[in-house]
């Protein structure tokens, strides 16, 4: 198997070799493409993209709280295609969880830890599922929309201690 040399070629091979891995594809300036991925097939797709699709670098994992649902967005960089690929996974608002990609790219481990810490999205099979930025025992996921910022005068100092 030769490595892919352009994004349309990669997409065609992706559709042939990993069937049903993506549910939608759209374009946006700045990225090669935006792929909508169902949550169960993310690890299968990621492994293919790393091994065959030349996406050797996982740049960014982030979560977005859309109140009625959650979204996890991955950005992958390919040195051959010189561009970013965006994967988007939609998750339910109740107990959102998705397979961890820490085994595919080691660089995703801390991004996933941070996403769990700040947004409360669980990553199944994560090698190190601890909080990262907030201290252990902190009760909230502060980047959720239900968590509102307040002036410090309104807060009891005691309640902010953990």
């Amino acid at each position: 198997m030769t490595a892919v040399s352009s994004w349309p070629e990669a997409l065609a091979r992706l559709k042939a070799e990993v069937p049903d891995a993506i549910t939608g594809e759209s374009a946006r300036p700045g990225v090669l493409a935006v792929l909508a991925v169902p949550a169960p097939s993310i690890r299968r797709l990621a492994t293919w993209l790393r091994d065959e699709g030349t996406f050797s670098h996982c740049s960014l994992v982030l979560g977005i709280d859309w109140i009625d649902h959650m979204e996890v967005v991955y950005h992958l960089w390919s040195d051959a295609l010189k561009g970013y690929l965006e994967l988007s996974v939609t998750l339910p608002a109740e107990d959102p969880h998705v397979d961890s990609l820490g085994g595919v790219w080691g660089g995703a481990i801390w991004h996933e830890r941070e996403t769990w810490d700040l947004l409360g999205i669980r990553f199944d099979g994560h090698p190190d599922p601890r909080r990262l930025l907030m201290p252990e025992g902190y009760k909230f996921h502060p980047l959720r929309k239900s968590f509102e910022l307040r002036e410090p005068e309104e807060l009891e100092v005691k309640s902010r201690h953990v």
């Binding site: 700040l118 909080r131 990262l132 930025l133 907030m134 201290p135 502060p142 980047l143 968590f147 910022l149």
Partner: peptide, 12 residues
């Protein structure tokens, strides 16, 4: 272990 300077910039 990081997070000692986490200032919530993304939230602000």
């Amino acid at each position: 272990e990081i997070g000692y300077l986490h200032r919530g910039i993304e939230k602000i």
